[in-house]
Design a protein around this nucleic acid. Sequence first.
RNA 1: GCAGGGGUGGCUGAGGUGGUCAAAGGCGCCGGGCUUAAGAUCCGGUCCCGUAUGGGUUCGUGGGUUCGUAUCCCACCCCCUGCACCA
Length: 940
Amino acid sequence: MSDLFSPDSEVIWQKKWNEARLFEQDIRDNRPKFYCLEMYPYPSGKMHMGHVRNYSIGDAVARYKRMMGFDVLYPMGFDSFGMPAENAAIKENAHPHEITERNMASITDQIKRMGFSYDWRRQLKSHDPRYYRWNQWFFTKFMEKGLAYQAFAPVNWCSQCETVLANEQVKAGRCWRCNGPVLQKGMSQWFLDIPKYAQELVDGLDTIQFPENVKSLQRDWLGRSEGAEIKFAIEGSDEELTVFTTRPDTLFGTTFVTLAPEHPLAATLVAGTEHEAEWQVLYDEVSAMSEFDRIKNMNKKRGVPLGAFAIHPLTGERIPIWAGNFVIASYGTGAVMAVPGHDERDFDFAKSYGIPIRRVLVKNENDDPNAELKKAECELGWMVNSALDGFDGLYGEDAKTAVIDALAAQGSGTKTINWKIRPWLVSRQRYWGTPIPVIHCDSCGPVPVPAKDLPVELPRDVVFGEGNPLETSASFLAADCPSCGTPGRRETDTMDTFVDSSWYFLRFTDALNDELCFDEAKANHWMNVDFYCGGIEHAQMHLIYARFWTKALRDLGLHQIDEPFNELLCQGMVNKSAPWCEPCGLTFSVDHAGKPCPHCEGPLTERSAKMSKSLGNTVSPEDMIERYGADTVRLFILFAANPTAGMDWSDTALEANYRVMMQLYGMPERLASWDGEAGDMDVWFEGRLKQRVAEFKAAMDTYDLRRAVELSHYELVKDVNWYTRRGGNNPVLAKRILRHWAHMLSISTPHLAEEWWSVLGMEGLISGAEMPSLDSITAEEQNALDGETTTRSFLESARKIKDVAERHLDGPAKTATIIVAPTWKRELAITALEFLEQGGNPKQFISVLSQMEIAQGDRKGEIMGFWGKKMLPQVFKWDDDSRVLIRSSLDEVASLTQRAAFIAEELGLDEVVVVLGESEEDKTGRAGGAMPLSPAVVYA
RNA sequence: GCAGGGGUGGCUGAGGUGGUCAAAGGCGCCGGGCUUAAGAUCCGGUCCCGUAUGGGUUCGUGGGUUCGUAUCCCACCCCCUGCACCA
C-alpha cells in the first residue's frame, strides 16, 4: 500500500490549484464554452450529503469539459436571503447578517475541502447590496413596463411565518416552508405578471432538455386550457356576468349559473333579497377557512340562490343565479355556467337542489336524445335538443366552434385561453430579503426609487420578533417622494427570495461588474447554462420563476437568451436505511433499531429512507472526508448510483471504495516496478486503452457518470490484471497508459490524479491539462483485442464444460483438444448474415441455402437441420463486432494455437491441441458442436 | 379523478431502437491461489437440471404480434411523484 495518501495531501493539492488559478475562467477567442452550474445553496452552517452529491456530479462534468478543451464557467455562490437566518436571529437575539456570514464561512470551508473546481472569484451572495441592488433595479423597470404592480387581492397568508406566500409556495393548503396552515386574507400586495409569459413558458419547454416529469409538472402548473368566455345578461340589471367554460358545446344545457361566494356580483345581487342572510353565512364560512379546510369541505356541495336571474345569451331563457362553495374565485372568471347533464359537479348540485337536468349531448350519433341521464355524461358527444336550429348533430370541436361563432356574432362570447398560473406574489412581510424599492407618496402614489438612489439598503436599526421588522426602523421609513419631493413613506415589504435565484446565473457571467447587472456580450457568450444540476423540488417554483425572469430581462433588452437552462439534471436523493415496520408501513428513527415496532410490537426490518435529522440516519460529510478523504467520498457517491437515481448510503460500500482508492494510489509505483520488455500483450493494452478512452467519453457525453467512473476506477484495473496475467510487464508502456488513465481519474478523484501526475513526472497540474487525443485503433490492435476476447470467452465456457466432462473421466482432465468449427459453418454464417442484412426474411433463407454448394450431396439434410436448429438462432446472437470477426481474416486455429500454452495453464492441463473440425487432424469426431467463434473442446 | 415515472435474479440495479440476455456492475455468499494466520489482493463460482459444450424455467399478471420478445401491442394489478370539485 502506498503511503502517498493522507487526507492532508488533498488540501495541499487544493492549495496548488488555487495558487495556479486553474479554475478562474475568462472568455478566450475561438474556444467552445461550457456553462456548468449547480443550484446555489442556502447557506446553512453545514454541508450535507445532498450538497456533496450535487456538486460531485457538477464538478465531474466541469472537469471533463475542461479537459476536453472547453472554456468552462463553473461558479458557486449563496442564496443567502431567507427566513431561516431571520428566525435564528430572533432565537439567538443576533442579526441575520452576522448569522448568514458566519454560516457562509463555515459551509464554504467544507465545500472547498471537497476540491471542487469553482471559479471562486465569481462567488455571489444574495444579501450583498451589490447583488440585490439589481433586484431592485429590475423591479423598477418592471414597474415601468407594468409587469410589476400593486394590487389588493385575497392572498395566501401563513401566520407562522407571518408573511404572504405565492401560489406556488402553498403545498396541499400548507406553507411550503413551515407546513403551517395557510389562510386567505385580503391585502394589498406586489405582483409580477407571469401569466403574460405563460404561452412562451409552455412553448419553451419543447426547446430545452428537461426531464419529462419536470416538463409535465410545469405544464400542469401553467395549466393552459382552451375554451370560451360567455357573457350572460342579468335580468333587471345593467350588469352582466362572464363565465369561463371549456365546453361551449354544452351551452344549451345550462340550467343555472354558479358564482364563487366571493364573486363581487354575488353580494350585489343578493343584497335585499330573502337569501341574503343565507349567502352571508356561506360567504363567511368560505372566506375565513384556510384553503386546506376549504378543499376538504368542498365535496359537500352547498349553494345559495341569489334571487337573481341571468339571460341565456342564445335562447333568452331565464336562468337562476346561485352561489356555490365549489367555485373558485380566482380561477377563470369566478363564475361558471352550470350544465348538470354533462358535468359531474353540476349534476350533484342540481340533484340536491332540485334544479332541472337537461340532455344536450348523446354518446353515439343515433342515440335517443331524450334518454334519461342517470349521471353526468362528460365526454364529448353529438349535440341534441339544441334550442336553435343548425346545432344538432355537431360533434366535439365542430360543436364548440359553432356555439362560439354564434355567440361572437352577437357579441356575447369569445374563444379564450385560460391559464391556471396566476401573477407571482412577490412581496413578503419579512426583513431578510431585498427591500422593494418604492416610496409611497400621498399625492403621487407608489413611486419607484430612481436608479441613482439604489440600492435601498436594509437598515440595521430594526427590532425582530413583532411583525415586519422594517416597520420598526424610523430612518428607513422616512423618505421623500422621488417625484414631488414631499415626505413619503418607504415600502416595507421585501421581495420573495425566489427573486434572488431567478437571475443569479446571469450575474455569474459577469459577477464583478459594479456598473451593470451584467455585460450583455458576456451574458450572451456564456448563456445559456449547458448543464444545470439540482433537486427536483425546484421543478415548479425556482425553475418557472427563473425562466420567466430570463425572458423578462431579455425583453428589457439586457440580453438575447430565451431560456436560461439548456439541460437540467435532477439528482436523486441520498438515502440510508432506517428501521421499518412492514405491517404498519412506518419508518422509525435509528433509535428503534433492534427493538420491536412501537405500534404493533412486531419485529422491525430495515428500509432505505431519505436522510433526515428526525430519523437520525444522516451521515456527516465532514467525518467521512476526515476518515477517507474527499476523493473516496466523491468516488462512492458517483459510483453508487446514476446521478438521477436515488442512492443508498452504505458504510461497507464506502470502505470498498476506499480500498479501490488505496489500490489506485499504489498503481504507478506497482507498474513502475515492472521490469520486462515490450511484448505481444503491449499491442493488446494499447488497443484496450483506446477502447476504454472512447467508452469513457461516450459515457461522459451522456452524463452517465456511473459508467464513466466504473471504467476509470474499475475496468482499467481489471485490464491491468489481465495484461499481467498474460505475461505483460513493460514499464515503458505502463507509463504511457497511466498518463492517459490519470485524466479519466481526474474528473471524480482529482487529488488522486494529481498524485499520479506528479509521480509520473509530468509538468504542471493535471487539473489544468487537456486530455490528449488518441489515434484510432490499428488493425493489429484490433486483432489482438479480438484474440483476447475470444480466448476469454472460450475459457469461460471451457471451464464449465470441464466440470461436466470430468464426471465422465476417471480422474481430472489432463489434456484438451479444441475443435474449431469446420469452414463450411463459417461460410454458411457469412452467407446468412449477408442475406439478412439485405433485409431477407429468415424463413426464406432455407431456399438460398439449398442452392449453396455446401448443401449439396448426402449431407444436405444434416446441413439444413443445422441451419434451423443451431445457426439461425446463433446468427442473431452475434453482435456487430462478432459479425465483423466472422467475415474477417481471423484464423481461429492460429489464434488459439498461439494462446494454447496460456489456455492450458488457465485450465490446469498438461497439453492443449487445436484442430480444425472435420479435418485430417480432427480425430475426435466431435466437431458437431463447434460454431464459428465458439469452438468445441474435448477433454481427456 | 388527471398527468408523469416505475414494477428485473438473495438484495441493489443496468439494459429496454425485438435477436450480442440466464440478463452488466455492486453488495452478499461459496471455492481456489497467496499467507504462519487474518486482512488486503488476485482467480473462479453463485436460477434449476444435466453421464460433455446441452435442456428447462425466469425480467408484476394475463393475452397478442413474430422465425424470435425483459425489450413491441392490448387488458389488468401494484408502487412512487405531482396536481386536484380548475368549470
